[in-house]
Design a protein around this nucleic acid. Structure first.
Length: 650
RNA sequence: GCCGAUGUAGCUCAGUUGGUCAGAGCAGCUGAUUUGUAAUCAGCAGGUCGGGGGUUCGAAUCCCUCCAUCGGCUCCA
């Protein structure tokens, strides 16, 4: 008798071994049609694998990660089969499922390349193979058998993988004429794979090691329905339209210059205005939370970074020191603001009563990122952190953490990031030697973070081994309007710098104690945040933030004087207003300004002149009729107030 | 940094068996028009075809090299 416990704790009993697929069929035919994989006692299995003992199970459909994983992993095998058929003699590396789809790394051998032009061929072959409805068959094999199989094939990659596996745990999967070393799980058959798209091709090092051979990585995605593929492709198109590099150019927010250097953004007037508004917004919040603004220079003596330990760790891969005409003097461009802030902390002795001390600075830093790594505003070589360092007593850590989280929440709410989660990065429990600071301190701070996120009711996941060497951290991820995930703000505990800079405060016991330091940047960096904001809003920023709020469009030159009056009136009401008095037809002016994503367009002609009104048009939403000028100004101010008041932005 | 692709006017892009191939649209300027809710018409101007070197009678086009951008990999204090 085998007892199968379902997620709702109901129990089904079977007389003999039974597969996940049979269980699903038992429950309902509809379910059996949709189910893709099964979790058996915390292990994900193939549906057709017999369960021979009592188990807790969960059946996975497309909507579950586990279901998609099996689907895409099976698709990777299908693609490998197709590629083996099309390119005889290729050697397969690894081929996992990823967040959106799957890839396979292959060694094509000398003088063979795959380009975009080959994609249709691969897709067609995959479709042909999928339609054969081949079963994915799992087979447990002895290590020697697996080694023999791949040695005979001359595939050194698989041989290397197998060598590292333990005998008795090795499985092969077969479908059609294709065999692959694989842990599974897989779909019952290729039949379910209906819609196929090869997405891209790129190079990737074998096992991610840049000293080893570079393989060809082919990316693809598949779906159980053609319609789902089409929707996915639409989403990709939409993402392309929202690319911050494209919108940044269209809206004249920022640019790059080859002459200035790669990865060094130039903020244009509109972008600078937007950024400044964001900075002022955060400054105001920080003031409420007891932060003090400080300012520090862009360079510092090399010695500063030797003290902090960063020179040893990153010196070789950073911008190299700046030498002065006097021999022996070396300065570094600052890659971070912390050491400067530590020195600010040290300008006078601190009492335990003074803590926490919170120094904030929009500090511009320079990091030598590898050239291939640069990307728009999200990865640059010069950027401005919305940085602050909190120096506090160990017993204040949790409270300070919660306060920083409040600031992060205010920002996310004000900018309409409704969907966010956090990642708590803790020590690797297996190896505690690579971290600096006492066990006791680590335990205290890790539990402080965990208590803080619990008390703030934040959705989070824990990553062990992801902590920095100097302390645990909390990172915030937001989902944008297209469901893409971005990492923004960060809060990090640091035991290293207070030690290295010998920071102190005098306790109630009149003895010297070491403060704890918190690094935090709710935006992350101004560059990255603006990039994410652009992609989130598609360039349609909230009214309070957008560089230009209103544009006045006179019907003809005869109405320019009145338009000028409207312009001045609104600007006097602190409404950021432009005028478009070009000699163009009104339709043209509307089109151009709609494309500039200015939220309100005011059309003024003879009617409006006579009645002292404006005709209001909302960006993307058409004509709203006319109203008195004063009435319009009140409307705008009310809307801005509604957006800002909840967070006391202004 | 590595693999692959790309680089033509401010923007988007045509233009390769090497020979009126230096083009178009938008933006800009000038003029006409004086306009009522997403593109008025005409004219003008604008590029050492990413930089440098080479092959050739002749190079945007072929080769080498450097730079930058894009897609990945690796990396991200």
């Amino acid at each position: 008798m085998i007892k199968i416990t379902l997620p709702d704790n109901s129990v089904r009993e079977y007389n003999e071994a039974i597969s996940g697929y049979e269980i699903a069929k038992n429950i309902s035919h509809g379910l059996a049609k949709e189910v893709l994989s099964i979790t058996v006692n915390d292990e994900v299995w193939d549906l057709q694998r017999p369960i021979t003992y009592d188990a807790k199970i969960k059946l996975h459909k497309w909507d579950d990660e586990e279901g998609k994983h099996a689907f895409w992993h099976s698709s990777a095998h299908l693609m490998a089969e197709a590629m083996e058929a099309l390119y005889p003699g290729i050697k397969l590396g690894i081929g996992p499922s990823i967040e959106n789809g799957f890839y396979y790394d292959v060694d094509l051998g000398e003088e063979r390349v795959i380009t975009d032009a080959d994609f249709p061929k691969i897709e067609a072959k995959m479709k042909e193979l999928a339609q054969q409805k081949n079963e994915y068959k799992r087979r447990e094999v002895a290590k020697q058998e697996a080694l023999d199989f791949y040695n005979k094939k001359g595939n050194e990659y698989k041989v290397e993988l197998i060598t590292e596996l333990e005998d008795g745990t090795i499985t092969l999967y077969e479908q059609g004429n294709f065999t692959d070393l694989c842990r599974g799980p897989h779909l019952p058959s290729t039949e379910k794979i209906k819609a196929i798209k090869i997405l891209s091709v790129a190079g990737a090092y074998w096992r991610g090691d840049e000293k080893r051979k570079q393989l060809t990585r082919v990316y693809g995605i598949t779906f159980p329905k053609q319609k789902m593929l089409e929707e996915y492709l639409v989403l990709i198109e939409e993402a392309k339209k929202r690319d911050h590099r494209k919108i940044g150019k269209e809206l004249e927010l920022f640019t790059f210059s080859q002459k200035v250097g790669q990865g060094l953004p130039l903020w244009l007037p509109k972008g600078a205005e937007l950024r400044e508004r964001l900075e002022n917004f955060l400054k105001k919040i920080q003031k409420r939370y007891g932060y003090q603004q400080v300012i520090s220079p862009h360079i510092g003596l090399k010695e500063l970074w030797v003290t902090s330990g960063h020179y040893e760790k990153y010196g070789k891969d950073s911008f190299q020191p700046i030498s002065t005409p006097t021999e022996g003097e070396e300065f570094l461009l600052k890659p971070m603001n912390c050491p400067h802030h530590c020195e600010i902390y040290k300008y006078k002795p601190h009492s335990y009563k003074d803590l926490p001390v919170r120094y904030a600075e929009f500090g511009t830093v320079y990091r030598y990122e590898q050239s291939g790594e640069l990307h728009g505003l999200t990865r640059v070589r010069g950027f401005t952190q919305d940085d602050a360092h909190i120096f506090c007593r160990p017993d204040q850590l949790k409270d300070e953490f919660k306060k920083v989280m409040d600031i992060v929440f205010i920002i996310f709410n004000a900018l309409d990031f409704k969907n966010f989660t956090a990642q708590v990065s803790l020590r690797d429990p297996e190896d505690k030697t690579k971290y600096i600071g006492s066990d006791e301190n680590w335990e205290k701070s890790e539990s402080a973070i965990l208590e803080a996120v619990d008390e703030k009711d934040l959705k989070y996941n824990i990553e062990y081994g992801e902590a920095a060497f100097y302390g645990p951290k909390l990172d915030f991820m937001v989902k944008d309007a297209l469901g893409r995930q971005w990492q923004l703000g960060t809060i990090q505990v640091d035991y290293n710098l207070p030690e290295r800079f010998e920071l102190e405060y005098v306790g109630a016991d009149n003895k010297k104690h070491r403060p704890v330091m918190i690094h935090r940047a709710p935006f992350g960096s101004m560059e990255r945040f603006v990039a994410v904001l652009i992609e989130h809003t598609a360039g349609k920023f909230p009214l309070w933030l957008t560089p230009d709020q209103v544009v006045v469009l006179p019907i003809s030159e005869k109405h320019n004087d009145y338009a000028e009056k409207v312009l001045n009136f609104l600007n006097n009401c602190d409404i950021r207003t432009l005028i478009d008095d070009r000699n163009e037809k009104i339709g043209k002016k509307i089109r151009d300004n709609e494309l500039k994503r200015i939220p309100y367009l005011l059309i003024v002609g003879q009617k409006e002149v006579d009645s002292e009104t404006v005709s209001v048009r909302v960006q993307g939403d058409g004509d709203k009729g006319s109203m008195k000028l004063k009435e319009f100004a009140d409307l705008i101010n009310k809307e801005v107030k509604a957006q800002t008041e909840a967070y006391k932005i202004n």
